[in-house]
């Protein structure tokens, strides 16, 4: 357990001292959302209708940006090889990294989402449902991201390949994430989507450390 906490605190320290890494992600998230009104025109009703989708796309893209620092720097400086000799399983190291990735690449986005809600003319109720849906769904994105980063860590230009690999996996998260926000199909359907989203997140967060650890072990040989 102390090993798990060591990895977690190291990752968070590195992110916080990273010279604006977190701020960059947050700005990217807000800017992606902010350019949409310019592209689709200033129709307030239309914007409010597509706002949930825009928020989810912005969050998805911003989380992809943070992927390359997940395993890449550790492999470059030899830390990854030493993780394999550590007293805790590699999957525990990855689990700590998934959690740190969520804390440093997803939580700040959720905290910044009021800015997007304002820009996209969301009403209050939709906003709270958006926050809930992001909280439920982003852990799954973090887990999928860890798998993608682990599979491509030994590959050159892997940081470009990882998003392509995990985009298809992330489609269900986007579908149910947006489904949990928009009440178009009645409140029951939104609730069902939210529950499914939570189930998906739980499953991915539990399984992804093992899958990613396996991918790293194979890639390093």
């Amino acid at each position: 357990m102390s090993g798990f906490l060591s990895v977690l605190s190291r990752e968070i320290r590195l992110s916080l001292r990273g010279g604006g890494e977190i701020l960059t992600l947050v700005l990217f998230f807000v800017i992606v959302g902010a350019v949409v009104p310019f592209a689709v025109g200033p129709d307030k009703a239309l914007l409010a209708r597509i706002a949930p989708g825009i928020v989810w796309i912005a969050a998805f893209l911003a989380m992809l940006l943070g992927l390359e620092k997940l395993f890449g720097p550790d492999r470059a400086d030899g830390t990854l090889a030493l993780y394999r000799l550590a007293d805790i399983p590699l999957s525990a190291v990855v689990a700590a990294k998934v959690m740190a990735h969520w804390l440093t690449a997803a939580l700040p986005l959720i905290l910044a989402s009021p800015a997007l809600a304002l820009l996209l003319a969301m009403d209050g109720e939709t906003f709270w449902r958006t926050v809930l849906s992001l909280l439920l769904g982003t852990p799954a994105l973090a887990g999928f991201g860890a798998i993608g980063a682990a599979v491509t860590v030994a590959t050159r230009r892997g940081s470009l390949l990882a998003p392509i690999l995990i985009a298809p996996l992330s489609v269900p998260v986007l579908i149910f994430g947006v489904g949990a926000i928009s009440a178009s199909g009645g409140p029951d359907q939104a609730q069902a989507a939210a529950l499914l989203l939570a189930a998906l997140s739980l499953m991915v967060v539990v399984l992804s450390p093992f899958a990613a650890a396996l991918a790293i072990d194979w890639g390093e040989d």
Binding site: S6, V7, S9, V93
Partner: peptide
């Protein structure tokens, strides 16, 4: 971005 002490504490933690 990690001090020498933090680096060693980290290695002690996981090893």
């Amino acid at each position: 971005r990690l001090t020498a002490v933090e680096t060693l504490e980290f290695w002690c933690g996981i090893n």
